[in-house]
């Protein structure tokens, strides 16, 4: 693998749970992100997949320096990301941008599209001279497939898909190296999802972007991602290339997720792994393996020892890509193809 542009090690984000009005006492912690490590190479797409509430969006916000981490490190092009302050932080923001999930709340309703897409240039005036901005904004609108004439319109005059394109244009304005896509298509219709995903992959080729692509559904990221990391309750349970994950998933949670992806062929019958119950509270996660409360393979050892994310060679549960399961094995049943 090439030198990663973004390298995250043991990232932890705990939110304190407090009680009391005047004198707040901390009575516990929500472990939203609990020891996540990942690498992102220039120009590649890393998918981060997991259920709602597994900490994906928190991970994105910590990496965007919107909320401070509890512990762990992240390096951006070899520099400590969490140590950046002031001018260095502002300069770094040009290199890493975010596309947010909900196109209806991610655009300020009182500003025109020109204001919204041009705001990066207002904040970083060194990027584009003042007289050049209008042209740059129109160029960006064209790049994301919008009519550059619409520069004076307001967000509410656009559809969901078009709004998401505006959000993408804003993220693209400063020519970042990395874009964090926080479920950019989850709020869109399926037909519009395909268009936005295609746009993202076109832009990746054109500008050499690296994506950290967050999604709650393995189906969506399938065509876009080079590598995939599956998250459960704040930790990565399995990671590998798209091929390894989709064809040879070895963690029971990944297998269950894959079996839930709909197959567009009504004649195909396949075994489905149904997960019972809800995700346990991240404020009080289960001992040992966090997935054990819902895992069909759970045994005593799972409650005692948290499985490490690794290859487990020579144990009978060896895998070709890192998996956090004591009983990792290739899918026995039918593949979710």
């Amino acid at each position: 693998m090439r030198e990663p542009v973004l390298s995250v090690r043991d990232l932890v984000k705990h939110f304190p749970v407090t009680r009391g009005v005047l004198f707040r006492r901390t009575i516990g912690h929500v472990r939203a992100v609990d020891g996540v490590s990942l690498d992102l190479a220039p120009g590649e797409t890393l998918g981060v997949v997991g259920e709602s509430g597994c900490g994906k969006s928190t991970l994105a916000q910590v990496l965007m320096r919107l909320i401070p981490p509890t512990s762990g490190t992240a390096q951006f092009e070899g520099e400590d990301l969490f140590a950046k302050r002031g001018a260095a932080l502002k300069a770094w923001r040009r290199d890493m941008q975010i596309v947010l999930q909900d196109p209806y709340t991610s655009l300020n309703p009182r500003r025109t599209v020109g204001d919204i897409v041009g705001e990066p240039f207002d904040i970083h005036p060194e990027v584009a001279p003042k007289g050049d901005r209008r042209r740059r904004v129109q160029e960006l609108l064209e790049v994301v497939g919008l009519n550059p004439e619409h520069i004076r319109r307001y967000p509410h005059q656009f559809s969901g898909g078009q709004r998401q394109r505006i959000g993408i244009a804003r993220a693209l304005a400063l020519r970042p190296k990395v874009i964090v896509c926080d479920e950019p298509v989850s709020a869109l219709d399926v037909s519009i999802q395909a268009q936005v995903l295609n746009l993202l992959s076109d832009l990746q080729r054109e500008f050499g972007l690296a994506y950290l692509f967050i999604a709650h559904d393995l189906g969506v990221v399938r065509h876009l991602c080079d590598r995939v990391a599956v998250m459960y309750l704040g930790s990565i349970v399995e990671t590998g290339t798209a091929e390894e994950i989709y064809a040879r998933a070895s963690h029971p949670y990944t297998q269950a997720l894959l079996s839930s992806v709909p197959v567009p062929d009504p004649t195909v019958r396949r075994a489905r792994i149904r997960l019972e119950g809800d995700v346990p509270s991240p404020a009080d996660p289960p001992s040992g393996c966090r997935f054990r409360t819902r895992c069909p393979k759970a045994q005593e050892v799972c409650a005692e020892q948290p499985p490490a994310l690794g290859l487990r060679p020579g144990t009978g549960h060896a895998t070709d890509h890192p998996t956090a399961c004591h009983f990792a094995e290739p899918p026995r049943l039918v593949r979710a193809e």
């Binding site: 497939g145 519009i192 295609n198 076109d202």
Partner: peptide, 27 residues
């Protein structure tokens, strides 16, 4: 990039949605 699913081309799409917007506003 494994596959780019070229079934639907992105750019210049959604013409039907753009038409719904009235032209008078937002000058």
């Amino acid at each position: 990039m494994t596959d780019t699913a070229p079934a639907l081309r992105a750019r210049g799409a959604e013409p039907d949605e753009a038409a719904a917007v009235d032209e008078s506003a937002g000058r």
